[in-house]
Design a protein around this nucleic acid. Sequence first.
DNA 1: GTTGGATATGTCGGTTGTGACATATCGCTT
DNA 2: AAGCGATATGTCACAACCGACATATCCAAC
Lengths: 108, 108
Amino acid sequence: MWLSGMEHEGAFGDGKWRLLQAIDREGSLYAAAETMNISYRKAWGDINKAERSLGILLVNRQRGGRRGGSTTLTKAGKQWVEAYTLMRTDVEHAVNTAYKKHLNSISP
Amino acid sequence: MWLSGMEHEGAFGDGKWRLLQAIDREGSLYAAAETMNISYRKAWGDINKAERSLGILLVNRQRGGRRGGSTTLTKAGKQWVEAYTLMRTDVEHAVNTAYKKHLNSISP
DNA sequence: GTTGGATATGTCGGTTGTGACATATCGCTT
DNA sequence: AAGCGATATGTCACAACCGACATATCCAAC
């Protein structure tokens, strides 16, 4: 499952969803990218695209400082993750049910 | 919505679904491709991919003859279209409901 | 056996998406 | 002021996908 809009094609999906969760755990985009085995550049691009697509500020970015900086979820970001998680569960369940109901007996 | 499998990525979706319906109406792949404004080559490739992905013979192909040939849905093909249509309706409804329930109040 | 109109299929060039590389920037700490 | 470790961003090459073009093949009707 993923979301699209009129202007933004792959606005949000499970990849960005897991990335946001990793940011929440790690406290930085850099560390989150590492744990997901993707380049920092990609992670950064994904977050930006998600924010621009959704029109929601998902993360607080902190540059510089002793520890270089940090990235954390905004309140709206946490809300979004929570809501997406719930929707994802509902949809997954519905798809499973519909699949079993209609296609399971036909498709090998 | 569309279906994928372990080995086949875009196995079946609304495009192929509409193509099968067009074949059922027109009685030939050639005519179906025309009404959908896609090349015969693409339509042919799509049908083949769908059949190989699903492991189901969806159409009867008839080559040669006075009228050149024809393509019609097999019984299994009609069953598949019917089942996919039902599943599609269920999923669409569930997605709408889940979206309104969880995301509508958040996303602009 | 020739024709007509469809199916069948290889190939190739353009388009788009995606990630790696390189580099700039920031600000606390020392 | 120098260093460090993170964020920020332009660029570019490569892969993967997709459709257009070209061509071969089939067979009932005549």
